[in-house]
């Protein structure tokens, strides 16, 4: 019984926090300087991390892709096109979001958790400052915007790495590799939808976890780890939902 009610309470809390954040953003938008500082933090903290992880992902995807493709196809002329397609609609958004969840999500939870256990949130309240408006809203906006920027960056890095791998190991000419032949607008919309939903959910889930922190440094540690698992899992669920929904919608049209 308690498990079931706990299970239902989480989505309700998340939706309420999302609502409060959006209302605060619309009614009392944060000063743009604060948002820019937060965007700088988000981008700055994760840019090297994303370059390394997505670079290696690009290398290995092309490597495996070429080896597997050679089993069923005569040549590798379309490997680049398929690679870029899957990067735009699947791996680019999703793996970037997993990295942002790891880096930025846990950071937001740690920051808010520390504020809760050291009574800073109550100090805000007694000064008539809404913690959602003052702390969550600027971070939320920054993550939503930066998710798009970082995903584009990630796709570029992965494609560059994949191109080098294709050229050096499989002798696929960069001209042949770099083609948008398989990319339709529909794929781009799917990718953008994913990026937007990931950007909305990561800061909200992380903040909710931080707000629930209790009791000293142990509580901050717990809320941070909870944020990592919950945001990672949310990204995977959203990926499934969007991919499935998009596939079904496409079938209706064809």
């Amino acid at each position: 019984m308690t498990l079931a009610t706990g299970f239902m309470a989480l989505p309700r809390n998340l939706l309420r926090l999302l609502g409060e954040t959006v209302v605060a953003l619309v009614l009392r938008p944060p000063p743009w300087r604060t948002v820019v500082t937060q965007m700088y933090n988000v981008g700055f903290r994760s840019v090297v991390f994303i370059a390394v992880t997505l670079g290696f992902l690009g290398l290995i995807t092309v490597y495996q892709g070429c080896i597997q493709a050679l089993k069923v196809l005569p040549d590798l002329s379309m490997v680049g096109a398929a690679f870029i397609n899957v990067m735009i609609m699947e791996f680019g958004p999703t793996i970037t979001a997993l990295m942002v969840a790891t880096r930025v999500g846990s950071g937001i939870a740690a920051e808010l958790g520390t504020m809760v256990v050291t009574d800073q949130v109550e100090a805000l309240e007694v000064s008539n400052t809404d913690p959602v408006e003052y702390v969550v809203a600027p971070r939320f906006l920054a993550v939503v915007v930066m998710m798009f920027v970082l995903t584009i960056f990630a796709i570029l890095v992965a494609t560059l790495a994949g191109m080098v791998m294709a050229d050096l190991r499989f002798q696929v000419n960069p001209h042949t590799f770099l083609t948008l032949a398989y990319v339709e607008w529909g794929d781009v919309y799917i990718g953008l939808t994913k990026v937007f939903l990931y950007g909305v959910s990561i800061p909200i889930i992380a903040a909710e976890s931080g707000f629930r922190a209790s009791g000293g440094s142990e509580g901050v540690g717990q809320s941070t780890t909870r944020a990592v698992v919950n945001t990672l899992f949310a990204v995977i669920i959203l990926d499934f939902v969007v991919a499935g929904a998009a596939f079904i919608i496409r079938m209706q049209f064809e």
Partner: peptide
């Protein structure tokens, strides 16, 4: 709350602000 000032046991100073901004906050 506009008529109440509190010093918390855990201090609850904002670590993202400097001393001046903390004191000026209310």
């Amino acid at each position: 709350r506009d008529r109440i000032g509190v010093q918390f046991q855990n201090l609850a100073l904002f670590d993202f602000l400097n001393v001046f901004d903390n004191v000026a906050f209310p």
